[in-house]
Design a protein around this nucleic acid. Structure first.
Lengths: 215, 215
DNA sequence: TAGATTGTTAATCGATTAACAATC
DNA sequence: TAGATTGTTAATCGATTAACAATC
């Protein structure tokens, strides 16, 4: 509650944090105890300078002449990212993508708990997918207000995407993980993170066609 | 064959191209015939300057005093991205993510044709998913060499990810769309585009926790 | 101690924005 | 024509890299 306003950190830095985490986890898994910024840079394809610069936005985690303790650093970064918290989530739209996420992704490692999924299709309501109950989309608001939900995972069709997002915002959620291939408009107090499959595929096609051209 | 080496264009620009395409498609769908860099900027949250700068890397598409023809510009950008070509793809690993992609994504709009899926699980081989035959992973090499495959969509488990990528590269594919949450190591002549679900979710958690802290 | 490596300040590089002549 | 808007060059801003004193 102390309204502690952190200094604004660039998106570039934030985007690298999960990559640091990934590598540190691998190092920890292979029992590597310590790593220097230079060593980390070599693995990740970054300069040692950039790594030290990145970390310095959040504090000091290393030791001169020694480097960083892998496990300690890993834990610090996880904490910086807020992964030590617990988040309650609901999933909107149990089409293929929604189902795939429920069945495939291990949300517990990220501290995210999926409490329920919502759909409008009568035949799905009342069933459950990977242990998650599918409820009537009309009950979203009541449910979220009663249960306190932080995150909505938006997997509805592109046409319903904005509407679903608005319902979720009305229901009090604070973050949307967006799989709808649609840009959502939300109030300032709501965070949106997009997975745009088609953008990614198009990028792949650009680099591929470029590669094919230049030979 | 003309080995025409295009000038190197920054990743930032390439990443914006699909967004331009998305907006131009919407404008075209709503029968908007022309748009200025200023108008486009307003919709996309970019400066008019940046938009003109971006386009200028590829050529000149506008008209002074008028702006850009929406449909013509859309087509130009699609061409720049290589979306007018046809790509042959195979999908590796028919777990949930693989299945979801086969059933959910409309690849034809991107000029990508999924010819076959591959898996090691006996019980799946010989079946088909959304009209795509599931073949034995051991036949990948022979298949690709016979059929001429450009893209591998890597949906195997994290543990098999690097191995699957290497097989695909050996089999002559030139691009990997990577859903394995793993950094792949490939030769220079192969393009990799990643969809890292966990990176995205962690980013969401960072911004969410930040938001929750500052209130 | 000597060698290694941090955290941080300064220099460089690249990307975005501003300005403006050209021209539809 | 006058107004609008491009394409491009120059100015600014921000991110990355280099350098180095501090110190383990």
């Amino acid at each position: 509650m102390p309204s502690r306003k952190k200094k604004m950190i660039s998106d570039h830095v934030i985007t690298r944090l999960p990559a640091y985490l990934r590598v540190l986890n691998e190092l920890a898994a292979s029992d590597t105890e310590r790593i220097s910024s230079q060593g980390l840079g070599k693995i990740m394809g970054l300069t040692a300078s950039q790594i030290r610069q990145d970390f310095s936005y959040f504090g000091t985690f290393g030791q001169q002449g020694y480097g960083y303790q892998v496990v300690a650093l890993r834990n610090e970064i996880a904490k910086i990212m807020g992964l030590d918290r617990n988040y309650q989530a609901v999933l909107l739209g149990t089409g293929n993508i929604g189902q795939a996420l429920l069945e495939h992704l291990d949300f517990s490692v990220s501290g995210v708990h999926i409490k329920a999924a919502f759909d409008v299709r009568r035949e799905l309501i009342g069933t459950d997918i990977a242990g998650v109950p599918v409820l009537d989309a009309h009950d979203l608001m009541t449910y979220c207000q009663a249960e306190g939900v932080d995150i909505a995972i938006n997997c509805v069709s592109a046409e319903s995407a904005q509407r679903a997002a608005e319902h979720a915002v009305e229901a009090g959620i604070r973050a949307i993980w967006n799989f709808t291939n649609t840009v959502l408009t939300v109030p300032d107090h709501v965070v949106v993170e997009n997975i745009f499959f088609s953008d990614s595929l198009q990028r792949l096609e650009y680099y591929l066609s470029d590669m094919l051209d230049s030979e």
